[in-house]
């Protein structure tokens, strides 16, 4: 176990290193930040001074090495726009995105799992068919449109919930969180629900498919032959087998919730990382883009690693050692 963990860790480091190259080159070719950063009225001397200040006069490979050197002590460079360390900017916004993503995931699991279980156990009931048709809507309606509709119905027409922002936040572990105050929770509700919609349908359909796959198995029939109560068959025998594919998907989807919450954050003016990255791309704020992308790489690598660990806990047939 320990050896394979170390091996995987080394693999992860190589993945991250490879990504730095791709990200750095990719960002360098999408445009020259100088054109946006520098006042068009500035004279040539001024231009050269700014270019030299950001190290943009160096050849690309040298810029890359300088960037790597910075990385070793956690320095992604200063934002061109804000003039502050890029990493700090992102970490500042992280709690907002994190709480949005976690809320959305919780909503998706709490709604998707039981409904999927129900639809899988009683596939012929009318209610199951309604659930399954509803999940198609959840899949196919575009997030931005649903977000606008939610705002229109719950904020504009009914005036129940606020349209944007995080509301009042409270400090916890050195960061500001919305979910700790009543006002913040009210602000969180709509964007979280909006972000959760797609994932709910995904978990629902996955759960249903899993139930239908597990139910006809001999071991379920044997569990019935033992005279077990139906409750135990469903919540232990069926559910535990379901968790294996579900954990994979939930883990990966959590990463994508964080990485791609851009649309929801934009619609609800939620001051998270998604909004920051969109703004930074528009302004070609290289250090922020690079730092953000690297954070995402790190996030997915970590999640994949955690999923693997969960696997071994859930499925006794899988052992990390057994994998080459």
């Amino acid at each position: 176990m320990a050896i394979s963990l170390i091996r995987r860790l080394i693999q992860a480091l190589f993945v991250i290193l490879a990504m730095t190259v791709i990200v750095f080159i990719g960002v360098s070719v999408i445009g020259n930040p100088v054109d946006i950063l520098i006042n068009p009225d500035a004279n040539q001397a001024e231009r050269l001074r700014v270019i030299a200040h950001y190290g943009l006069d160096q050849p690309l490979w040298k810029q890359y090495l300088l960037f790597l050197q910075g990385l070793t002590h956690g320095d992604f460079g200063d934002s061109f726009v804000y003039g502050r360390p890029a990493l700090g900017l992102i970490l500042e916004r992280l709690p907002a995105t994190l709480e949005l993503a976690i809320s959305a995931l919780l909503i998706a699991i709490v709604i998707g799992l039981p409904l999927g279980l129900y639809a899988g156990l009683y596939p012929n009931r009318l209610s199951s068919r309604i659930i399954m048709s509803g999940s198609i809507l959840g899949f196919s309606l575009p997030t931005f449109w649903v977000g606008l509709m939610l705002i229109m119905v719950f904020s504009v027409e009914l005036r129940w919930l606020p349209t944007n922002g995080r509301g009042v936040t409270a400090e916890f572990l050195g960061a500001q969180w919305s979910f700790l105050t009543k006002d913040g929770l009210v602000h969180l509700l709509l964007p979280a629900f909006n972000l959760a919609l797609f994932k709910t349908s995904l978990i629902l359909r996955l759960t249903r498919a899993g139930v239908q796959e597990v139910l006809p198995q001999d071991y379920i029939k044997f569990a019935r032959a033992k005279g077990l109560p139906e409750r135990r068959i469903i919540f232990v025998h069926v559910l535990k087998n379901l968790m294996i594919p579900l954990v994979t998907i939930i883990g990966l989807e959590f990463g994508s919730l964080i990485a791609f919450s851009v649309v929801t954050e934009s619609i609800f003016a939620w001051p998270g990382m998604g909004k920051l990255i969109i703004d930074s791309i528009n302004l070609l704020d290289r250090p922020v883009i690079v730092a953000y992308l690297m954070m995402m790489v790190l996030l997915f690598v970590t999640l994949n690693f955690l999923i693997d660990v969960c696997y071994t806990l859930l499925d006794p047939r899988v052992r990390l050692d057994a994998r080459a």
């Binding site: 198995q217 001999d218 029939k221 044997f222 025998h237 535990k240 087998n241 859930l314 499925d315 006794p316």
Partner: peptide
């Protein structure tokens, strides 16, 4: 009851 295929009658994750 005892079933035909012993590889399938026990729940693999319990």
């Amino acid at each position: 009851m005892v079933f035909q295929d012993p590889m399938m009658t026990l729940n693999p994750v319990l």
